[in-house]
Simulated assay, not measured.
Amino acid sequence: MDQRGPVVQGALLRRRLTELRRQSGLTQEEVARRLEWHTSKLIRIEGGRTGISKVDLDALGQLYGVTDPALMEELRLLNREARSKAWWSSFKNDVSDAYLAYVGFEAGASVIRQFQPLAVPGLLQTEDYAETLAHAAMDADALKQLVKLRMMRQQTLRQRPIPPYEIFVLDEAVIRRRVGISRDRAIMPTQLRHMARVAQESERISIRIVPFETGSHVGMLRGAFTLLEFDSGLGELLHRENGDLHETLTGEDPRISEVRADFEAILGEALDPAESLTLILEAAASME
């Protein structure tokens, strides 16, 4: 299977089909009328709310004037990949569909940029830190599955043939808050040393800290967010979450460019990677 995964492949297929429809000068209503479909069927297909069968895909290709066998085979391959089972599908009963959709996009990203003002990003968390952070919000079984999903996200991303670039910008509050101190004083310093080790071992992972001495910065108002980029021509994606609420924006939504500009502004306030690792390790030592 393509390392981009079924969610990204499905998004690429929908984008290509929408482009072909527009190039053919057809509206959704006209396509539905010619194929004797309900318009809602095409809306669901282009919006990603339903899959598409091989028969329907071939019908669309013929209607859109696709005569190049290579292009048609590319569309069929995207469709087969989009309909394949993903590793995260085993968690569909444990977390929301919206969150799993984000996990699918993340799995196929080429660049991951994230700002976190309060907590260590999930892709950098140890099991103990993840368990402690979510402990008060869910029962034991749900907690076990959430932590398992988080660890698998880390593992599968970094075992890809070409891992993504991961750039994390954290407020200093993230590395100073002693998460888990009432349970085990070693949880937070261990977490900090883990973060430093991950960054030191991979040239594709960068952790930057915005120090307290910077004062106020735009991230304090923006809150946590993640930006994903893809090497497949798919547009940039913005993901924000607050508890169980997840918002994922794709395409040309103007909020994406606004948040990207904010990320660059926050990055400009951060220490460089070497200084950031020094601060992280100093914070760990102070907790021991």
Score class of each variant (00 low, 15 high):
169 V>Y: 08
166 E>M: 13
16 R>A: 14
129 Y>C: 03
63 L>P: 02
281 L>K: 10
27 T>S: 15
47 G>L: 06
17 L>W: 08
167 I>H: 15
56 D>A: 06
275 E>K: 13
48 G>W: 05
63 L>Y: 07
188 M>R: 03
255 R>H: 12
257 S>I: 08
160 R>G: 01
114 Q>E: 15
280 I>H: 04
14 R>N: 06
102 Y>G: 06
154 Q>K: 09
96 S>K: 10
189 P>Q: 09
278 T>E: 15
284 A>N: 04
195 M>Q: 09
40 S>W: 02
45 I>R: 02
11 A>C: 01
78 L>F: 12
286 S>H: 13
143 L>Y: 02
262 D>C: 08
260 R>F: 00
215 G>T: 04
153 R>S: 11
113 R>I: 00
63 L>V: 05
19 E>V: 09
21 R>C: 07
40 S>Y: 01
67 T>W: 01
204 R>F: 01
232 S>A: 11
282 E>Q: 14
65 G>R: 10
17 L>D: 11
32 A>P: 00
197 R>I: 00
276 S>V: 05
144 K>Y: 07
212 F>G: 03
245 L>F: 09
265 A>G: 00
208 R>S: 07
127 E>H: 05
174 V>P: 03
216 S>N: 07
141 D>A: 14
212 F>P: 00
96 S>N: 11
196 A>M: 01
24 S>N: 09
58 D>N: 09
277 L>N: 11
15 R>W: 00
214 T>F: 01
216 S>W: 11
258 E>R: 12
232 S>Y: 02
132 T>D: 06
117 P>Y: 11
67 T>Q: 14
219 G>S: 05
53 S>T: 15
56 D>M: 03
88 W>E: 13
56 D>C: 07
243 G>I: 04
282 E>G: 00
224 A>H: 08
193 R>H: 13
58 D>I: 01
21 R>E: 08
14 R>E: 10
